[in-house]
């Protein structure tokens, strides 16, 4: 089925409806077409996120294999973004980056996605507040408020966001997308809120190389916190002081 765009012809009713739903529903919803509903990130669900938690990822670069893209395919399937044959404009929520140290010749491969910064520049610069950080550390774009200015893309040090350049089809109800707005990794917030792991982590464990761990960085008992406390790890561009929630081992 071809879904209509998230964009509604009449924004006034769009806003009105959103405000109305904000008060009652646990998740802000907007009706796209009869029988089709997507959630917009933000609103009550974000407010209910537990501020004591800080969700994060730990990626072991030694385990992440060069030819493996299990996490990327899983994310694309889960969230409904895909290769449309226009590499310069297609969205990529997660990508594999190949590294080579010119001094030693060491080659490494790793997955890069939104790093869910504690001090996210994308949130600081966003004029409308569409870019926001949930109390549990997940950084999202509220698709109803984003005006598509792309300032967050200019500000993000990790190239973690994509602008939607074309009308989108095949939207997933839990991952609203809309031409003219910006999007990025949501840490599979819809799964996390139901007690599951992000799709990339699941895929990496089952069909990949078990290189990813997801968990609560603030819970000293969690596997991710134990790993971080026991073994050396690093953040990409840690010099920027953004304190990302995504960490890497053996980088």
């Amino acid at each position: 089925m071809k879904l209509p765009l998230l964009k509604s012809k009449n924004d006034a009713t769009d806003i009105g409806r959103r405000q109305f739903l904000k008060s009652g529903a646990a998740m802000v919803t907007v009706t796209l077409a009869p029988g089709v509903t997507v959630m917009a990130y933000g609103g009550a669900a974000a407010a209910q996120a537990n501020p004591a938690t800080r969700w994060g990822l730990l990626i072991d670069v030694n385990k992440c294999a060069k030819d493996c893209t299990a996490c990327v395919s899983a994310c694309s399937n889960e969230n409904g973004w895909q290769d449309t044959g226009n590499p310069a404009t297609d969205a990529q929520w997660i990508r594999k980056v190949e590294l080579r140290n010119p001094q030693t010749g060491l080659e490494q491969s790793l997955a890069v996605m939104c790093q869910h910064c504690e001090n996210p520049p994308c949130v600081d610069v966003c004029p409308t507040g569409a870019s926001f950080k949930r109390p549990d550390g997940i950084v999202l774009v509220d698709k109803h408020i984003c005006i598509g200015c792309r300032y967050c893309m200019m500000a993000c040090p990790y190239k973690a966001r994509s602008f939607i350049h074309e009308p989108v089809t095949d939207q997933k109800p839990h991952a609203p997308r809309g031409k003219g707005t910006v999007e990025g990794c949501t840490l599979c917030v819809h799964r996390v809120d139901e007690g599951q792991q992000p799709a990339c982590v699941d895929a990496c464990n089952t069909t990949g190389n078990g290189a990813m761990i997801f968990g609560d960085l603030n819970d000293p008992e969690s596997e991710i916190a134990i790993q971080l406390a026991t073994y050396a790890s690093s953040a990409i561009r840690s010099d920027l002081g953004l304190n990302p929630g995504v960490r890497y081992q053996n980088l």
Partner: peptide, 22 residues
């Protein structure tokens, strides 16, 4: 040139005061 120029009203009513753009 905004992706959603039709949402101008949002740009003018919702401010993030940490944003230099706002």
């Amino acid at each position: 040139d905004l992706g959603r120029a039709d949402r101008l009203i949002i740009a003018m009513t919702k401010y993030n005061f940490r944003s230099i753009f706002a």
